[in-house]
Amino acid sequence: MWDVVIGVVAALALAWLTLVAALLISRPRGGLLREAIRILPDTLRLIRRLAADGSLPRGVRVRLGLLLAYLALPFDLIPDFIPVLGYADDAIVVAAVLRGVARRAGRDAVRAHWPGSDEGFAALCRLTGLSR
């Protein structure tokens, strides 16, 4: 019995460490993480607007819906009480999903739904790799 419990706990710990490592690998480099955190409120509104746009491909809307569900969960991969990383994990996940979504949806669709400033959109373009 204890072997099973220890095995399950070890497997969960390994899965968690793998997810944290994936977050660290996919995080934006340089000052982009700081920019991602700064534009996070506008980015969340963008995600909601893009997810509601029926003209976008279904795969894009599904990814955005799953991202919104992840953000709504009451727990995180890295708890928020851990300084810096606790809040950065949400920004990293949002940035990673947005890279693929923005490239698939296109710059024009993202710009049409962007609720923030031009400087914020420029930061989003740098973060997602969209050409300005």
Rank of each mutant, 00 (worst) to 15 (best):
A88N: 11
D90V: 01
I82Q: 14
L85T: 03
I78N: 13
A95D: 00
F75R: 10
L68D: 14
V93K: 07
F81W: 15
V93Y: 04
V84W: 13
V94I: 09
R99H: 07
D76L: 13
A88Y: 13
A69G: 14
D80P: 08
A95W: 08
L73T: 10
L71M: 12
A95T: 04
I78C: 13
P83I: 02
Y87K: 11
P79G: 11
V97T: 08
D89E: 05
V97D: 03
F75L: 12
L73D: 05
L98R: 09
V94A: 00
A96M: 06
I92H: 01
L85R: 07
I82F: 15
A95C: 02
V97M: 03
D89A: 00
D90G: 07
L77F: 09
R99D: 00
L98M: 15
P79V: 10
L98G: 06
L73A: 14
F75N: 05
A72F: 12
D76P: 12
I78M: 14
A88P: 07
P74C: 10
G86P: 06
D89K: 04
V93L: 10
A96T: 12
I78T: 11
I78A: 13
P83C: 03
A95R: 00
F75H: 09
L71E: 13
V84R: 11
L77Q: 01
A72V: 11
L71R: 09
V97Y: 03
F81M: 06
L73H: 12
F75V: 15
L71Q: 07
R99L: 06
L73P: 05
G86K: 01
L77H: 01
A69W: 15
P83S: 03
L85N: 01
L71Y: 06
I82T: 15
V97L: 00
A95I: 00
D89H: 04
D90H: 09
D90E: 14
L98N: 11
A96S: 12
